[in-house]
Amino acid sequence: MSITRLNITLPTHIVDDVKALYGPRGISQFLEEAAAEKLAALKKSAYQGLIEGYQATAEETVEVLKKFENVVTEKRDV
Results as ranks from 00 to 15, higher is better:
M1F: 04
M1G: 03
S2Q: 02
T4W: 07
L6R: 04
I8Y: 03
L10T: 03
P11G: 02
P11Q: 13
I14F: 05
V15I: 08
V15G: 00
V15F: 02
D17T: 07
V18I: 02
A20W: 03
Y22T: 04
G23N: 00
G23H: 00
R25C: 08
R25N: 14
I27A: 02
S28L: 01
S28T: 02
Q29F: 13
Q29T: 14
Q29M: 10
F30A: 01
F30N: 01
L31M: 01
E32P: 04
E32T: 07
A34E: 03
A34N: 01
A35L: 14
A35H: 06
A36L: 06
A36K: 15
A36R: 15
K38F: 14
A40S: 08
A40M: 02
L42H: 08
L42M: 08
K43G: 05
K43Q: 14
K44H: 07
S45D: 12
A46W: 07
Y47T: 11
Y47A: 12
Q48I: 06
I51P: 00
E52F: 10
Y54M: 04
Y54D: 05
A56S: 12
A56Y: 03
A56G: 06
A56F: 06
T57P: 08
T57D: 14
A58T: 02
E60H: 04
T61Q: 10
V62M: 15
V64L: 08
V64I: 13
L65P: 06
L65E: 04
K66G: 07
K66P: 01
E69C: 07
E69L: 13
N70P: 03
N70C: 09
V72Q: 03
V72Y: 12
T73P: 02
E74Q: 13
K75W: 12
R76I: 05
R76Q: 08
D77H: 12
V78A: 14
